[in-house]
Design a protein around this nucleic acid. Structure first.
Lengths: 200, 200
DNA sequence: GTGGTTCTATAACGACGTTTCAAATCAATG
DNA sequence: CATTGATTTGAAACGTCGTTATAGAACCAC
């Protein structure tokens, strides 16, 4: 019937893999359609037949970032202590960011200002946030924290995201001090929220 | 001796002004050398004779962002209460971000991944961070907080930056709830840090 | 008016994302 | 086995970007 297809699933995975490598090794500016195609031994057209456009490819890498994060979250066991569980979510967030810094940048930085995640992708991203809301919610349920779980989760996320950004930028001192700062920050915020009621 | 100069200080200011307007109205992608020159009624060359290159212009807008922030910080009066002063710095940070969202994006987001601030500009930026370190330092001095002022400032900055990012992205609920979340987060972090010692 | 000097706007360059389109390839058909 | 037809691919072209080279415009001194 037709010419045999080479723009197939194999090439698709190869492009995603090589794209991630390009991003990690040389930064977002190096991720161009031409360069990527050359590295993968194909032509720029492949990106368009397999991903629609450049942002289609970026979208999949974006999702992969959240997939890996979700994996870590899912691996967390729910202990009997909601406060410890909440803490574990924060640690998982940080660990994931340090394990996949280029994907973290893709997820929460904006290395491609023109890229906006698709609706389905945004839903996936929001889903992982749901784990955080659930964690604060359980703290509220057992009376450890007070207030709206979503607002509490937002505050925690703000803190964790802020510290992670600073750490990846290298603005946190030595690794040991970074660990200490993280521990203290998380614990302080939690203890503070326990003591500071919703009516300020 | 020569042709009269039109690439002068007046045009320079006009370009900066028009650049800010472009950024605020249509986002970073719209800030191109050609478009800017056309808006300012000149040619692309003007950007190069006055700013070296595109990033020279962006660098000046970046500095303007920190200049405005420093202005707000300088306007804060030092009360007898270091805790209140620390709180005021956080509020000034938020207020500045809301008053100049496109400059905030320039300062702490990375709308132009290729742009790296010059050394002198980074020094200006770090200078404003010094005000925060000073605020935490005074809290330490009078025994309100414990630990290294720089680490404390980093924790506070992480929190404030995180919440500001979320607010500008529209991830914080209604304005009233945002206010409440901010108040509670700031107070909780402060009270938590008071109670959680450096030895965790 | 002419020459020399200084400055500007135009046009070109390479790279980008994207699109168009002809060449390439194989199954089905005669 | 040759031809047709459907389908996919890669090369070339388009418009845009930041940037640069350059031709010529605009002034002063003579």
């Amino acid at each position: 019937m037709a010419r045999p297809r080479t723009h197939d699933e194999t090439l698709r995975l190869r492009l995603l893999d090589e794209g991630g490598r390009l991003l990690a090794e040389q930064g977002p500016a190096a991720l161009t359609v031409r360069r990527l195609a050359e590295r993968a031994g194909t032509s720029p057209s492949a990106v368009y037949s397999l991903f629609g456009d450049k942002w289609g490819l970026v979208d999949e890498m974006f999702r992969e970032g959240f997939r890996r994060f979700a994996e870590r979250i899912a691996a967390l066991e729910r202990t009997g202590n909601p406060a410890a569980d909440l803490n574990a979510v924060g640690e998982a967030f940080r660990a994931n960011a340090r394990a996949n810094p280029h994907l973290y940048d893709l997820m929460f930085g904006e290395p491609f200002p023109e890229f906006v995640p698709g609706q389905e992708t945004r839903a996936v991203a929001m889903g992982t946030f749901g784990a955080l809301v659930e964690a604060t919610g359980r703290c509220v349920d057992v009376g450890l924290l007070e207030g709206d779980p979503l607002t509490l989760a937002t505050i925690f996320f703000g803190m964790v995201h802020g510290l992670t950004s600073l750490e990846l930028l290298g603005w946190l001192p030595s690794p040991e001090q970074a660990d200490a700062a993280w521990r203290r920050a998380r614990l302080a915020l939690y203890e503070g929220l326990r003591r500071v009621s919703t009516e300020v």
